[in-house]
Design a protein around this nucleic acid. Structure first.
Lengths: 224, 224
DNA sequence: CGTTAACTTGATAGCATTCAACTAGCGTGG
DNA sequence: CCACGCTAGTTGAATGCTATCAAGTTAACG
């Protein structure tokens, strides 16, 4: 058992946790709520790159660089813990397993990014939307936070459309179509998946990329 | 000085190096040429996720997982070296600096993915195209492979359009517009950037994400 | 009740796709 | 030698998905 001293902090919806350009000294662990990682474009508009939920490290990829090239903000009420990079590096050096776990986390993080590229690049708004909903549903399911096929996703359509790279207006129509087709049901902030298979079909969703089976090295090391 | 035993292999254009679903046991280091990382969709079409050039590790992110969730193929004649994961893990364990370098590489790899999401999500075909050209130009420049603002990019318009998530037809028109506007010049397989600033303006290109300055930890460790 | 944020719906415009045809270069085999 | 097929690039016309602009609804809240 490990005990790591961390500082904990509470945030409200839409509050910034890290700003682009911030000098980074700590990694952000999400205990409760949901946060987004985003980039700001020249014209001031933003693009949400990913959502992080309970148990995720929101800015792991910044461990290696001095300046953040993206921002992190709360998308609901959030409880976060901060682990200094220094501590992370020491832990990795002392405990091989932790280093591997961090590496694994980083790779899954990357894998989700790659999958998202496919999503935005090759699928229309309907598929994209379905895919995002399924990814979030699957991740919440792992946490045991899905009941009767329903989970809480306290994200406005405006923010969702930001992540999906479509306009809020169009997302709205898209969601209604998915609803009309009996695939999902929405009662903000709750989303229920009525037809997992149908939705997966629409989305082209194959959750391999989430690597739910866990890190190979970890298993290999501990199997014997 | 380190000596690592590797197996080296030659590939021709469009030859597959790793296939999706392959059991992975080695990491692929590119010595010469250019390769692409791609995913195959259900309908058989593909999406190119990234290009890797000389000096890159093409499938670093697979170090932690047993099965590839993407393929790697040659986009030109290629010389590649294969480093067994086993060796990588050992090196990381023995030499902190190497572990950090690998981590840094993985993070830059991820950062390029994130930037690409912004690209596809928020920019039109003209901007995307300009952005890809600038990214490749910048990476080749680091390698000293840009002369008189020109470099060799032996990738067909079909493959480029695959990466950009647009149709070959539309890419063609887009390239001609960029050419007509005096921003670039194309004489396959060579591309010349005639107006770096203008192109960067069109692309919204800010190369911070490439982290050309190198890993912080590395610098910190060796500065003293 | 007025205000605000979020959601919904309609009409129009524009960018990218799709389908199709045509050109150019290049290697192969009759 | 030339015909042929193949790959890559180019151009045109029509369709369609998504954005844009605009307006209206609903719910929460002081």
């Amino acid at each position: 058992m490990l005990a790591v001293r961390t500082t904990s902090k509470e945030y409200v919806n839409h509050q910034e946790i890290f700003r682009e350009g911030d000098d980074l000294s700590a990694c952000c662990f999400i205990e409760r709520g949901i946060v987004s990682r985003y980039k700001t474009l020249r014209d001031g508009s933003t693009q949400i790159l990913a959502f992080y939920i309970a148990g995720d490290l929101a800015n792991l990829s910044s461990t290696m660089v001095a300046i953040a090239d993206h921002g992190i903000r709360a998308q609901s009420d959030v409880t976060a813990h901060f682990v200094p990079h220094q501590v992370i590096m020491e832990l990795c050096a002392e405990h091989v397993v932790i280093g591997q776990a961090m590496g694994f986390d980083a790779m899954v993080d990357g894998a989700m990014a790659w999958e998202w590229i496919v999503n935005i690049g090759r699928r229309d708004s309907r598929s994209r939307t379905a895919h995002l909903l399924l990814e979030m549903a699957t991740r919440y399911k792992v946490l045991g936070m899905v009941r009767d096929d329903a989970f809480i996703l306290p994200i406005s359509q405006v923010d969702l459309s930001d992540a999906l790279g479509i306009t809020p207006v169009h997302l709205n129509r898209t969601l209604r179509r998915l609803r009309r087709d009996g695939l999902i049901d929405i009662a903000f902030p709750q989303i229920r998946i009525d037809d997992w298979e149908g939705l997966a079909e629409v989305a082209g969703f194959e959750p391999v990329y989430l690597h739910l089976e866990g890190p190979r090295q970890f298993l290999a090391t501990h199997a014997a």
